[in-house]
């Protein structure tokens, strides 16, 4: 009886192990097939025409994506990094800190379409403007804020206390310590956070639908910043790659809609994956360096 009890135990163990192994690998294979499909399908259509900066190509959308993400990074860095400094260095224990932390958490879990509507209301309706890139960038920067805040806070918190003590010991004020010692020392980690945020920014769509607009009309010989077709004018409608996919699938007027969408997806995938790999590699290097000391 004892023997059969053990055999049953062993059998249950084996069955569950097989189940876990199967579940994990089938999920991973599905994910790999997913990437493979997007890349394979996309690369088939990545012709010179497709990559051109014309109405037929995706160059303009690609440029809009990069420009918009760049602007949102700037905005969210201006707000998010000081907020992280506040949490790590200035905040005292109390209700205010709890409140700020709660805010960071809430912001990071808000659906992007809700933030998009907020952006639409504040940056479009209330300013009486047309769809424009600046509104889109500001909206996306709200979505990036929590990530940058918590990355900055964590980066500062992992610094050794001795940096602060020696800096104060040399007669530095708190701000001098933060500016000249702590922020430079935390810079690699904050940079990693910015790259992570950029990776997410590239994929954002729902927040841009009602802010950045679904059209783009760039003329590459127009460098008058005030003109609505100047590439660098942030106050022009600017369809990004993600919005382009959405537009193609819902209002597919163009003949090669499917091909364009496939190419867009592949470009986005390359952008997102390469940025998150860079961020990963950087934090790996930082950890290794820290561990080495």
């Amino acid at each position: 009886m004892n023997d059969s009890h053990f055999a049953a135990k062993k059998r249950a163990d084996n069955i569950m192990t097989v189940f876990f192994r199967f579940g994990a690998w089938s999920a991973v294979i599905l994910l790999i097939a997913f990437v493979g499909y997007v890349m394979g399908e996309g690369c088939r259509y990545l012709t010179a025409d497709m990559l051109s900066f014309t109405e037929k190509g995706l160059g303009n959308q690609f440029f809009n994506t990069l420009y918009l993400v760049f602007l949102s990074l700037v905005f969210s860095a201006i707000g998010g990094i000081p907020a992280g400094v506040y949490l790590a260095e200035y905040a005292r224990k109390g209700h205010l800190v709890k409140w700020v932390r709660m805010a960071v958490e809430t912001l990071s879990s808000l659906p992007s379409i809700v933030v998009g509507l907020f952006g639409y209301l504040v940056f479009i309706v209330m300013t009486h403007s047309e769809w424009n890139m600046l509104a889109g960038a500001l909206t996306v920067s709200i979505l990036m804020l929590p990530l940058l805040t918590s990355v900055t806070e964590d980066a500062l918190r992992t610094l050794p206390e001795s940096y602060r003590l020696s800096s104060y010991g040399l007669g530095a004020s708190q701000w001098q310590t933060v500016l000249h010692v702590l922020l430079p020392a935390a810079f690699p980690r904050i940079m990693t956070g910015l790259i992570m945020a950029a990776g997410r920014g590239f994929g954002e769509a729902a927040a841009l639908m009602f802010t950045a607009g679904m059209s783009t009309d760039i003329r590459w010989d127009d460098w008058n910043l005030g003109s609505p077709s100047c590439p660098l004018n942030p106050l022009r409608p600017s369809e990004t790659l993600t919005l382009h996919i959405w537009a193609l699938r819902t209002e597919a007027l163009e003949v090669n809609a499917n091909e364009q969408a496939a190419a867009c997806s592949a470009i986005l995938m390359i952008l997102v994956v390469s940025f998150s790999l860079i961020a990963r590699y950087m934090s790996y290097r930082i950890d290794k360096k820290m561990g080495g000391n």
């Binding site: 050794p160 001795s162 003590l165 020696s166």
Partner: peptide, 8 residues
């Protein structure tokens, strides 16, 4: 200090 504390 007890431990050397150079800045990075």
């Amino acid at each position: 200090f007890q431990q050397p504390t150079p800045f990075p």
